[in-house]
Design a protein around this nucleic acid. Structure first.
Lengths: 152, 152
DNA sequence: TGCTAAATAGGAATAGTTCCTAAACAGGAA
DNA sequence: TTCCTGTTTAGGAACTATTCCTATTTAGCA
């Protein structure tokens, strides 16, 4: 997804957000990544451009972008929040070895039939499928000893 | 799922775990719950029987049970880990208002076709569907102002 | 250009969890 | 049954991710 500075600026304006260099850099870094980075990942990536920047700013910015609907928070496990600027409906595949998250864009998964056995007055607004497994690298390195315990 | 003390004891033995009163109470409380409690929820539930018990013991016990495969960890959002002793394949429905987790037992969801567009050497071992929405109570109270941001 | 609300930086605080250690105990061996 | 040993427990300290607080800075409008 290639996006220009003016695109970002326009998006910020549409959401009533000021266009600051830090905010632009953080959002841009997230747009360019498909790795679902953590706040700290983004901080490390952006910090060279802004040696004075605080991790706090990254958290604040991610919070603002999330509230504005420009990004999503994706959580795998409870340890750290991870973020995604890909707003098109999609699903995820997680390696239980290295915690890598791969996007699964298969549109068939977007149209699951409504499940039965749920409370009648519960209004479902969306769903997401999370696949778990081992990536090639982890399969080779760990001899397939998967820890199945944790499921985001 | 009704389960007796001797059932629990046998399960522990099969896993090479000692049968202590605290451990039995924690596992029993989890077996009797469908609310996907947190470590602290379980601590509060079990503490009256063991006034000396520490929250630490709950964490240790949950860790051991998880490693032994007797329970699963279910994470919604990144804030706190939640646990589930229901090992039959199932899915979840989460209320974005009150964070309540409802089990979705629809077996059709257990047989999703393998998605395309994923790395060839990635071995998928399982999947889980998470439905999001608002429960009846939250729909009435919050006027449907849903925060779509977080998806566990 | 000046004003003002929003954004930033930095430090302190908080929440959830894990680590460390000594004492207690379950379960097998004698 | 009693003893022994490794496991479990309790308690506190430590750690990590995140949020809160506040003074300063700044983007964007008038």
């Amino acid at each position: 997804m290639e996006i220009s500075f003016s695109d970002i600026k326009r998006k910020f304006q549409e959401c009533g957000l000021k266009t600051t260099p830090q905010r632009t850099a953080i959002y841009d870094a997230l747009l360019r990544s498909t790795a679902h980075p953590t706040a700290e990942d983004l901080f490390v990536k952006v910090a060279p451009q802004f040696p004075m920047m605080s991790l706090n700013t990254v958290y604040y910015t991610l919070g603002v972008l999330r509230t504005s609907g420009l990004i999503h928070e994706v959580n795998i496990g409870h340890t750290r929040a991870r973020f995604d600027a890909n707003l098109t409906p999609h699903h995820h595949l997680i390696c239980l070895g290295c915690q890598t998250i791969v996007d699964v864009m298969d549109p068939r998964l977007n149209r699951l039939t409504s499940p039965f056995g749920i409370p009648k007055d519960f209004e479902i607004t969306g769903h997401q499928v999370v696949f778990r497994g081992l990536c090639g690298s982890c399969r080779r390195h760990t001899g397939r000893s998967i820890n199945h315990s944790s499921s985001g």
